[in-house]
């Protein structure tokens, strides 16, 4: 269970103006569930993830993580160490005990087989994104946070990677919180969609997706989208 209760989070810009990034925001992600955080661009979604990850501790509120296992993140940019090979990047994220683990299955699933010894600079963005996903999955996290992991990829590749994410998630249910501004993506993947207002971010609505993931074909997703926008007018 991930419980987020942020009362306020603001930034001071270089010229001294205070920008309120997140307003009064409460959200909880039950253990083993897949939740998507959807909101307009620039509404503070990434800030929320950074607060959950403990990368920024200057805010008013509490964040409680009851998952005891590892926490993994996939950032918006792949953030692979350019001076280490793909395989080294993934192994470095593993704790000492599982450093020698066999990763070939994971490389196979993500279409990275044969690229283990490549440096990130030699990969396309799509491949680098997959390596970043592999790094997060290899850790077998109990809490996984994803920040628009498929943004700026072509739709066919994004769809394939979404399929992979769903596959890996079903194989080993993990508590997932994914940030996206793509509603369709959220409807395809999530158990529950949390809609956010423009900055400062607040929860404007919650939409549970009850159709099982295996039955969400293109037509169903379109119908769900229509249902969602009808229930929450104003979300595009």
């Amino acid at each position: 269970m991930l419980d987020v209760a942020i009362r306020a989070k603001s930034f001071r810009s270089a010229d001294g103006t205070v920008i309120e990034a997140v307003g009064d925001l409460r959200l909880s992600v039950p253990t083993g569930r897949f939740t998507c955080l959807v909101g307009p661009s620039g509404c503070g979604k990434t800030t929320i993830l950074r607060l959950i990850l403990g990368l920024d501790r200057h805010f008013d509120g509490e964040i409680a993580i009851s998952e005891t296992g590892a926490v993994a993140a996939v950032f918006q940019e792949p953030r692979l160490l350019p001076w280490r090979t793909v395989e080294e990047n993934i192994r470095l994220a593993l704790p000492g005990a599982s450093a020698g683990e066999d990763l070939s299955g994971l490389f196979q699933t993500l279409g990275l087989a044969g690229l283990e010894t490549f440096y990130p600079g030699e990969l396309s963005l799509g491949l680098a994104r997959r390596a970043a996903l592999a790094r997060a999955f290899a850790l077998r996290p109990s809490l996984l946070l994803l920040d628009e992991p498929f943004v700026s990829l072509d739709e066919a590749l994004a769809a394939r990677l979404r399929g992979l994410l769903a596959e890996v998630w079903s194989a080993r249910p993990t508590t997932v919180l994914m940030v996206t501004h793509n509603l369709r993506e959220a409807v395809e993947l999530a158990d529950e969609i949390v809609l956010l207002t423009p900055r400062p971010a607040r929860v404007s609505g919650v939409y549970p997706v009850t159709v099982p993931r295996s039955r969400r074909d293109a037509a169903t997703v379109t119908a769900l989208l229509a249902d969602l926008t009808a229930a929450h007018p104003g979300t595009a």
Binding site: L53, A70, E88, L92
Partner: peptide
Amino acid sequence: PAYTEMATVFRFSPFRRLRHVILPQLQ
């Protein structure tokens, strides 16, 4: 800071951080 944050999230030990994150950038 992008790499420093990555190392924080994936709980790199201080030695691992020095050897794989900091020193290569200082090379």
